[in-house]
């Protein structure tokens, strides 16, 4: 297949939101003349995803992750640009396309509350026209992978949140989709269950060579599963590439954890780098990546160092930093624009 399974070219989604001033006066005003404002939920995003890749979508709430997923899965019509998935235009929602993809939303469930999950599976078997033998084989595999055996015949409302999510995943994967859109699949789950779901997604991806897009609030999901991440903020694509490069690019610093034999005052420490934490003899410093070995050597030579370790700062912090910087840049831009307007 020459075309990549997922491709977005200059994808856009704008909403018109009408703008109302507060109070009755505002209501009346907007009754007669409505002011509209474009909200750019997704603003010119392009990327391609190769077969078998697992890609993480990162971004704060309202960044446009879910909107992008919805356009790719065919639930939303793009306002501009083009989405192609498996050679289809998603919003045409052709059955041939829908049979080859799936959408899992961690916050919403498709299983019926009153009945055991297996009943919903049977309905899905009919909807997706899965032949009996294939159905049985897939169900067996999923049952084994997700350890569903004891859950399938229990009423869904009697399952725990994690058990329910496992059943949700199985229901969404019975037709062996080649493309998976997972929107917050681990939300609200405890750590062990998160790990299990993660392992399952990795295993499914390996077995079926499925292409996966994943959004999650938990960085651990992303670091465990995705070699590649796409960072979206305010509808714009901020970064597309490897997770490690993201850290390198977005965080030009490394973290030095130093243990000292005796306390050193802050001013003295600041000569080596930005002091993140100084609690008596334990100190954390941020130093430029390029000079990291030099800095470490100087520290060892000049201070009573007991131990020193060099680490990448936690990815959460990196991401937060990226978004903060982006916000600052936007504000600066806006200020500049305002200045030009005057």
């Amino acid at each position: 297949m020459s075309e990549p399974p997922i491709a977005a070219t200059h994808l856009k989604k704008y909403y018109q939101v009408h703008h109302k001033e507060p109070g009755l006066g505002g209501s009346l005003k907007s009754f007669f003349r409505r002011k509209y404002r474009d909200v750019k939920a997704v603003d010119d995003i392009s990327f391609e995803i190769a077969a078998g890749e697992i890609v993480g979508f990162l971004g704060p709430n309202g960044a446009g992750k879910t909107t992008t997923l919805k356009m790719l899965s065919g639930l939303l019509y793009p306002s501009g640009g083009r989405a192609r998935v498996l050679g289809f235009t998603p919003n045409e929602r052709q059955p041939a396309y829908l049979r080859r993809m799936t959408l899992v939303m961690g916050q919403k469930q498709q299983l019926n509350w009153d009945l055991p999950a297996i009943e919903t599976f049977l309905v899905n078997q009919a909807i997706y026209e899965i032949p009996d033998d294939v159905y049985r084989k897939t169900l067996d595999e999923l049952t084994e992978l997700l350890a569903l055996a004891s859950l399938l015949k229990k009423q869904v409302r009697k399952l725990s949140l994690g058990e329910r999510m496992k059943c949700e995943l199985a229901a969404a994967l019975l037709h062996q989709p080649q493309v998976l859109f997972l929107d917050e699949p681990t939300i609200g789950l405890d750590v062990t269950m998160q790990t299990k779901i993660r392992e399952f997604v990795a295993e499914y991806n390996r077995r079926y060579q499925a292409t996966v897009i994943l959004t999650s609030h938990y960085m651990a999901d992303v670091t465990a599963l995705c070699k590649r991440v796409i960072v979206i903020d305010h509808g714009k694509l901020m970064y597309d590439g490897g997770l490690e490069e993201l850290a390198a690019r977005m965080a030009p610093h490394k973290l030095l954890r130093v243990e000292l034999a005796s306390a050193v005052d802050g001013q003295n420490l600041a000569r080596y780098g930005e002091v993140v934490k100084a609690e008596g003899q334990r100190v954390e410093l941020l130093a430029p990546r390029s000079k990291i070995s030099e800095t470490a050597a100087r520290l060892l030579a000049e201070l009573p160092v007991v131990d020193v370790t060099i680490q990448d700062p936690p990815i959460e912090d990196v991401i937060t930093r990226v978004f903060e910087e982006a916000a600052r840049a936007r504000q600066a831009d806006a200020a500049e624009e305002a200045a030009e307007d005057d």
């Binding site: 919805k70 639930l75 929602r93 396309y97 939303m105």
Partner: peptide
């Protein structure tokens, strides 16, 4: 209201029928 109608729309079956 809840948003699960999306699941109906991504199924390979006529949404009106469903």
């Amino acid at each position: 209201r809840v948003g699960t109608f999306d699941f109906v729309l991504v199924k390979p079956v006529n949404a009106q029928f469903y």
